[in-house]
Computed example of a mutant assay.
Amino acid sequence: MQNIYEETVKKVEQGSKFYINFPKRVLKVNGKRIINNGEYDGELGIKQSDNPLDVITELFVRYHHSLPSERSNQKRKSYFRALPEHKLSDEDMLYGEPREVSQIKLELYVLMAILTGILKWDDFAKDLWFWQSPEHKELILLKEWIEPNKEINNPKNNDYVRNEI
């Protein structure tokens, strides 16, 4: 892929399934690994930011107020929580983005910010095991997503098995 971020978002907009694993640094689209253990071909396609938490917060707010669908409701895993349909405002219902699209934008940005090194745990949450946004209490980042336990990522350690789509 030339621009992994843009091309992945377009594929999800067209109905492709995706899977992201922050600790293992994995992105799958329709079962095909695009990023595997942090390795990829092509350009990630995100802009460097002085404050990636601002971008993550903006993407989270869009996701939090996104429109669910039958497809998004069947998804087994999401790193972040969005509002259920009955709690969305009229404005959300009129102008909200489809949930799968806003989810891939948010999760893929976080993954790519980790890979590029612009999201560094010690820069915003040193000595903590999680970070919670002061403005949006539902936005939480875990240290293990950004600085995973080395034993978990070790392929020789077969004790840690995670179901993937």
Rank of each mutant, 00 (worst) to 15 (best):
L115S: 04
W131T: 00
K10Y: 08
N30Q: 10
G38S: 07
V55Q: 06
A113V: 03
L139N: 01
H136D: 09
D122K: 11
L44N: 01
T116V: 05
K156C: 09
M93H: 03
H65Y: 10
E138P: 00
V29Y: 00
E164W: 11
L119M: 05
H64D: 03
G31V: 06
T8C: 06
I152Q: 05
D50L: 12
R162C: 08
R81L: 13
Y160H: 14
E97C: 14
H64G: 03
I35F: 05
L141E: 03
I104K: 00
N157M: 10
L115P: 01
I4E: 05
K105Q: 15
E91I: 11
N154P: 07
E13C: 11
W145M: 10
G38D: 04
S16L: 05
I152A: 12
S133L: 08
N149P: 02
N149S: 14
N37L: 13
K150Y: 06
L141T: 00
V29L: 12
F22T: 03
G42F: 06
R162A: 13
K75M: 12
N21K: 08
V101K: 07
L27F: 05
L115R: 01
Y95D: 07
Y19R: 03
D50S: 14
Q74V: 00
N157F: 13
P68H: 06
L139D: 02
I165A: 11
E144A: 13
E147A: 10
V161T: 08
F124M: 05
E151R: 14
L59M: 08
R162D: 13
L106D: 02
S72Y: 02
N154Q: 07
Q2Y: 13
H136A: 06
H65V: 02
N36A: 14
K17M: 08
N36Y: 14
R33G: 06
I146F: 01
P52D: 03
F18A: 02
P23E: 07
S49P: 00
V61C: 07
Y79L: 03
D122V: 09
E85F: 15
K137T: 14
I140M: 12
I20L: 04
P134I: 08
E151I: 14
I4V: 13
L88Y: 07
K87L: 15
D127G: 11
K11R: 15
L44A: 08
K143D: 11
L111C: 06
Q14F: 02
H136R: 12
D127P: 01
P68E: 09
D127H: 13
K32M: 12
T116I: 06
K105N: 10
L44Q: 05
Y5R: 05
K87Y: 14
I140Q: 04
K87V: 07
V9N: 00
I34F: 04
Q103H: 12
E138M: 11
E6M: 09
L27Q: 02
S89V: 05
S89N: 08
N158G: 03
H86A: 13
P134W: 00
D123S: 15
Q48A: 15
L139T: 06
K10N: 15
S69Y: 03
